[in-house]
């Protein structure tokens, strides 16, 4: 038996919009800790990890650890039928092959039940070790989204380098090159507008912009984004979900290939 009641229903709508481009089908896991998801894209280059802690729900009942396989596009279709102020309740019975989404309007005058078929999904769970990152950049989420969008009109990959001066995003394409430097900036009116760089040592990594752009679909969830970089590890792009948890995207870097016979 599973029953999760989320007063701020729009949150779930936003979460779905943030991940459905990257992943088609995924298992949602429910435990006493919360409602979570871990899934890779089909080419196993990017991974999304979502956590909505049980404390963030108005009512949270989950008798045993469960996983529910869902087609994210279908789930998004159903959630789009919920109003932005609606309270969303997610329900499922033991042994059932469906999950029910109940949408209640704020003044309780409309209640809608949507029942969706579950699917069997064989997915691999990856163990993500806690790691110390060489550089952690915190910046406004909208700013990061803008940078990724702008750069992808020029090139396919972005080099993110963090030095004492700041964080540099650069790309190169057929028409030319682009470099955007964001400096540390703590003196702002609102804390969410700050750009904060914590650097242990300089780091520079290359990533496919296609994935970065897809991560920025999570921008509506959070004012700020945190980008953690280490030369030995995939980048982590994290959007905090207020009082609930987070959505984290991991992306494997491009690898420099040593090619001796580069014919010009």
């Amino acid at each position: 038996m599973l029953e999760l009641r989320l007063v701020q229903g729009s949150l779930l709508k936003k979460v779905l919009e943030a991940i459905r481009e990257l992943v088609n089908d995924a298992n949602f896991d429910c435990s006493a800790t919360g409602f979570s998801l871990q899934a890779m894209d089909s080419s196993h280059v990017a991974l999304v990890a979502l956590l909505l802690r049980s404390e963030g729900f108005e009512h949270y009942r989950c008798d045993r650890n469960l996983s529910m396989g869902m087609n994210l596009n279908n789930m998004a279709k159903m959630l789009r039928c919920a109003g932005n102020d609606d309270i969303i309740t997610l329900k499922a019975d033991d042994g059932s092959d469906t999950v029910t989404f109940m949408f209640e309007s704020p003044n309780q005058d409309k209640i809608a039940d949507f029942e969706m078929k579950l699917m069997d999904i064989d997915s691999e769970h990856l163990g993500i070790p806690d790691a110390e990152y060489q550089a952690i950049v915190k910046m406004p989420a909208a700013e990061f989204a803008r940078i990724c969008k702008d750069l992808s009109s020029i090139g396919d990959t972005v080099v993110i380098s963090v030095t004492k001066e700041g964080v540099k995003f650069s790309t190169a394409g057929d028409i030319g090159t682009a470099n955007i430097v964001c400096r540390q900036n703590k003196t702002v009116d609102k804390p969410e507008e700050a750009t904060i760089i914590e650097m242990q040592e300089p780091v520079s990594l290359t990533f496919a912009l296609r994935y970065m752009n897809s991560f920025t679909k999570a921008t509506p969830l959070s004012e700020t984004v945190t980008i953690s970089l280490s030369s030995e590890l995939p980048v982590v792009v994290e959007y905090k979900i207020a009082e609930m948890g987070y959505i984290r995207f991991y992306l494997a870097p491009k690898i420099e290939e040593d090619e001796e016979d580069m014919k010009s």
Partner: peptide, 12 residues
């Protein structure tokens, strides 16, 4: 990252 075994049982 290396694969780990998931602890949840599928509802379906």
């Amino acid at each position: 990252f290396k694969p780990v075994v998931s602890t949840s049982t599928p509802l379906k």
